[in-house]
């Protein structure tokens, strides 16, 4: 099938502002959108720029706005996108070039919630014990691939610079609810601050955007409840 890709382009070395360009591509219905982008880059216009690596929804490189929704280009098939597809960079981060945005702010927010196990006493011989039930409490938030689809789908992050965003909260959740971790209070204090969970308006855009089907809003609500009722 032949499709039209309408791609937002911006070359920082040539352009004053972004504009759309269209490309006709012959694809299989079962091709990924990433395959269509590669077809353009490899055979039509080598200047088209985007990030990609694993090509099967695991590495988190190729989140972009596809027909108005945040998705991974490697995890959506052409048959589900229609004949004319609009592709734009994620919203809320500086556009560096074409579909590639500046991720530094995203990773800074992630780092600000102390996304690592805090457990200072020595673990002793063997593994730390954790029951399957304790392990299950934070299973969903371990799936995060840091693609930024959720954070850049959140209207709060579009309008304010200091909200840590859903992805950072997801990664804080992953540790707050881990029975082995002792840093919950530190993280909750951070998330109780002006850039934390109270900026969330429970819009569910994040949950809709997550390519890993993480219940992002629910995780944020669990953190809010932990702050309100000290339920960890």
């Amino acid at each position: 099938m032949e499709v039209t890709l309408r791609i937002k382009r911006f070359n920082p070395e040539l352009d004053q502002k972004a504009h759309f360009e269209e490309y006709q591509v012959e694809v299989e219905p079962t091709d990924r959108l990433l395959d269509a982008l590669n077809e353009v880059k490899w055979y039509q216009d080598g200047t088209l720029t985007y990030r990609r690596s694993c090509a099967h929804g695991i590495c988190g490189s190729d989140a972009m706005r596809i027909n108005g929704r945040n998705r991974l280009a490697c995890k959506i098939l052409m048959k589900d996108l229609g004949n004319k597809i609009t592709i734009e960079p994620l919203i809320g981060f500086k556009i560096e070039k074409d579909l590639l945005v500046d991720m530094e702010k995203f990773f800074d927010a992630y780092k600000s919630v102390k996304p690592y196990l805090i457990a200072d006493q020595p673990p002793g011989a063997g593994e730390r014990r954790q029951s399957p039930e304790e392990r299950a409490r934070f299973d969903d938030t371990t799936k995060c691939i840091l693609c930024a689809a959720c954070t850049t789908a959140c209207p709060v992050t579009w309008t304010s610079d200091d909200f840590v965003g859903p992805a950072a909260i997801v990664n804080a959740h992953r540790f707050i609810f881990d029975s082995r971790d002792q840093g919950g209070a530190e993280r909750l204090k951070i998330l109780n601050g002006g850039s934390g969970v109270w900026r969330c308006r429970t819009i569910f855009n994040c949950t809709d955007a997550c390519p890993r089907d993480i219940k992002v809003t629910e995780a944020i609500e669990q953190v809010k409840r932990a702050l309100l009722y000290e339920q960890v």
């Binding site: 690592y116 196990l117 457990a119 673990p123 063997g126 593994e127 730390r128 014990r129 954790q130 029951s131 399957p132 304790e134 392990r135 934070f138 299973d139 371990t142 540790f175 881990d178 082995r180 971790d181």
Partner: peptide, 19 residues
């Protein structure tokens, strides 16, 4: 593997809480 667990790696667990 034990070092990875100590670093926080969330392995699946046996009923008695081991890896």
């Amino acid at each position: 593997v034990l070092e990875l667990e100590h670093m926080g790696l969330p392995f699946n667990r046996t009923p008695d809480g081991r890896i």
